[in-house]
Design a protein around this nucleic acid. Structure first.
Lengths: 240, 240
DNA sequence: TCATAACACGAACATTTGTGCGATGTCAAC
DNA sequence: GTTGACATCGCACAAATGTTCGTGTTATGA
């Protein structure tokens, strides 16, 4: 979706968000957006925000105050006129990545384990003690080196994804996915975490194992039952 | 204020905030912080957050949900440990690290494809004509970083090793193996290349698939029939 | 022209989330 | 032992903030 094909309001909203996030270091609320873009109803803002999210330009997390972020890469590709904001989108991106100044080497936090029977704790509830960091060459992940984290696979339950006990899975944190993405998802009802290829079938979701052997079957669940934890960008197996 | 001079709780809080913001693109709430750092009272979190703000490490805006941001510059100067097991990484230490770059990053030649039906022909001379190079962090391979080469898997024939089409296998060139090593081997008679765990049974060799699913069975062959091409040290899968 | 989808409105609502404050615990200085 | 700074705890509270829903309004196309 090209920037200029957005509705006027959506352009305004996007511009404001970019500007706001540049000024503060957090996102605006829908009310703040509404005020500056002259939208009286919060629901209208939400409506347009949803559109922007559909276009992949922003990312929003449900029920989270200011849980709004900009997909900078997508924004650039949309032909966003970032000169208008005084500073470039690139500048902003650099700022975001300050913690990883080294472009060629990535440091990805190893946040815990992933196993079939237990949900991934994106926000671990125990005493905070990350297990460490994984060093990667930048080429080891496709796409932006952003929102990445690593999990160690525990048990052979993900073998249908050709992922073995002890493997390390590199994920990009996101709660939505596109068809063909391999995702880590928690399936409510089944109460299990799984690694599968994601396909949307209307209101339901089809999760297809990577291993084409027919002993491993796709599963289909209602979309609401499937909670995506992240997109798998890489799997690494270290043999002794 | 140096990072290590912070109270344990403050260190935990700071660490959590940094990682949280790395994953999401917004700040955590004081409650989320409290849960992960095992602080039961929101006011205690606030108290420590105030401290961190006094030290200039974070910035907070009153009454704003998640209106919390990190002062990255200050953080770096505080000696924040991006590597938890090693010593802290400061901007100044960069130059010292540069000479070590060769040690920390590996370039492994990509020598071709590996498929079930064709033997791997790796002669030392071919090393000089690779299809490309794979950049790895040193931690991606165990053991010495010599005699390494990479092959791209073609086809689903190695699925019994939980290795998929397109995966990259990092091998160390060697013609013998110890029990328990995963090897790439050409089996004469069967005329095929396979990736399996190597076990010696007297005069014969037992090759065990990594996938324990009984549809994949070990094979036993006379030792002379099994030509080892190398030991698998790593398997890497890149998803788009 | 009519149906339909896309867009907009506003108010009610439910949560999420930060703040305030009195009470308690700890520890070193006097 | 008393004092006081510092750190902690619970909990009540109010403000901040996203969502839902019934109802208009405006395009779009057959």
């Amino acid at each position: 979706m090209h920037f200029l094909n957005l509705s006027e309001r959506q352009q305004g909203i996007l511009r404001f968000i970019v500007e706001f996030m540049h000024l503060h270091h957090y996102a605006p609320t829908i009310r703040q957006i509404g005020e500056t873009v002259a939208i009286s109803s919060t629901s209208v803002v939400k409506y347009n925000l949803n559109k922007l999210q559909e276009y992949g330009l922003i990312l929003r997390e449900r029920d989270i105050s200011r849980g709004l972020s900009v997909n900078w890469e997508q924004l650039q590709q949309s032909g966003y006129p970032y000169e208008l904001n005084g500073e470039s989108v690139r500048g902003r991106q650099r700022e975001e990545r300050l913690p990883e100044a080294d472009v060629e080497r990535l440091r990805v936090p190893l946040l815990g384990k992933i196993a079939a029977g237990t949900p991934i704790a994106v926000t671990p509830s125990e005493v905070y003690d990350p297990e460490g960091w994984i060093e990667l060459a930048a080429g080891m992940v496709a796409g932006p080196a952003d929102k990445l984290f690593a999990l160690r696979v525990q048990g052979d339950s993900m073998i249908d994804a050709s992922v073995l006990d002890g493997d390390i899975v590199i994920l990009r944190h996101q709660e939505t996915a596109y068809d063909g993405d391999m995702v880590a998802a928690w399936i409510e009802g089944d109460e299990e975490t799984t690694l599968k290829y994601f396909h949307r079938d209307g209101a339901s979701v089809r999760l297809v194992p990577a291993n084409p052997n027919p002993v491993y079957q796709p599963i289909v669940r209602a979309a609401e039952q499937v909670r995506i934890n992240g997109k798998v960008v890489s799997v690494i197996r270290l043999l002794r």
